[in-house]
Every structure is written in structure tokens, then in C-alpha cells.
Amino acid sequence: MIPGAKRGFTLALAAGSLTLSSCASPAHALDEPVNAPAPKRIAKEGAGLKTAIFAGGCFWGVEGVFSHVKGVKSAVSGFHGGSAGTATYNRIISGGTSHAEAVMITYDPYVVRYDELLQIFFSVVADPTLKNRQGPDVGSHYRSALVPVNAEQQAVAKAYLAQMNKSGVWNRPIVTKIEKHRKFYAAEPYHQDFMAKNPRHGYIMRWDAPKVRALKAMFPTDYQPKFLRDDA
């Protein structure tokens, strides 16, 4: 784990000087978006709102991107894959739990399907060739993972990972895994809508704002300019 990972910045809030832990200090070159292949296996999810869970490094950026996707109704930062007793931010970043930082989204499949969310995720959010890290953040809690919550998502995710492996888009092996759905734990309130609340934060500007710009450029019909706020 990078020393001081997610502890490198302090943020003075307007309401007072509250020190927050945050994602690792941006010390590396920006990740580049890729043209992930259009999914061949189309999700058939039926009517009604659905949920999906994605783990792709620091949850600020994952939440930030999905909060700009049309059809997404809610995006919550949190933890998946571990126990309730250790599902707190400070405990997880210290290592030794099996959680991943993750985002649970609620979406309308008549506007954006699960397979389309997968393409967006691997195009502008997560590098599927990195094991237990994303960008400058290192540790198993920063792993990339898909967490299907039903049989249809499981089938679509499995098919898409296989398609990705054969696509030739990535020059290293795909290491993103499908993980069994377990309980999702929402992160502390100050992590929610972090990009919207802290647009000038150093980590956001360096790592996450470029992902949103890539979403707008690469998926213009899926992009919504207004940040979806869970507290709105």
C-alpha cells in the first residue's frame, strides 16, 4: 500500500476546518481512457429500477462518473466484500479486511442498460489489467471488480469480460473479477457526492475530473451535465 494512501490531503470546509482523509497523493501520470468494445451480450433486465455494484479504485471517481450518466438515479459510495464489523473507512484503508471500495448505483434499464454501464466503466473509470490498484492507489481494497446482483447481470458480466479478453484493446491480461454479491455498506457521509462538493480538491482535479470529461467526449448521448446528488 502506498504510504499515506488516501490520507495525503486535508480539506478546509466552509463550515469549519475539518480534516478529511482522502485518496492518495497524485504522483503519477494520468490514466488514459480506452475504447472498450461495444457489448455483444445485451442485458435483458425488464422494467423497473435496478441496482448494480462496481468496484474500481477510489470510490469518489466511480461515483462521480456514474452520477453523470443518464438513467442513473442514485450512486452511493461504500464498501463491499467484507464484514459489518470492519466496514468503516479508517479500518478498511489500514488493510487486512476483504472489502473493496465500491459504488452501488440505481438505474433505469430503459435508459441505460447494464451492458452499457459495463462499457462506460471499462472505458473511462477502471483499468481492468491492474491488480489491487487503480491509478495511484494501491491495496486490495482498490481492486476492480464486478458484483452482479442477479442472474442476468452475472451472465452479461461474464460474457463481457470474455469479450474484453479477446478484443485486443488491452495489451495486458484482464484481471478484473466477478465477485459474489454480499452486503453493501455505505461509506461515511463526507464521502458521498465528494466530487460535487469538492470540485477543486487536488485528487479530484487530477484523477477524477478527467474521467468525467472522457465520459462526456466518448459517450455524449449518455452524459448528463448535472451531477446527480443523493442529498438533493
Rank of each mutant, 00 (worst) to 15 (best):
K197C: 08
A43V: 01
K50G: 02
T221H: 14
L30K: 11
Y107R: 04
G46D: 06
E116Q: 15
Q119I: 01
K44H: 15
E63C: 02
G16S: 09
S67Y: 07
K211Y: 07
I174M: 06
T88C: 12
Q154P: 00
N150L: 13
G135P: 01
L118Q: 06
P128D: 04
K216T: 02
G71Q: 05
Y110C: 06
V169F: 12
G78I: 00
G48I: 09
K50T: 00
Y110I: 01
S98L: 13
R229M: 14
F54C: 05
K183D: 09
C58S: 04
K50P: 03
A12E: 14
E188W: 12
V147Q: 08
I92Q: 07
A84H: 14
V72L: 08
A209M: 14
V169M: 12
Y190V: 04
S94P: 05
A102F: 10
P109V: 09
Y89Q: 10
M1V: 08
P210G: 03
V169D: 05
A75N: 08
L161N: 06
N90Y: 15
A102G: 07
E45M: 12
A24C: 12
A24T: 06
A43R: 10
D31L: 12
Q224L: 11
E45R: 13
F54A: 03
D230Y: 15
F122V: 03
Y110P: 01
F194G: 01
T221K: 15
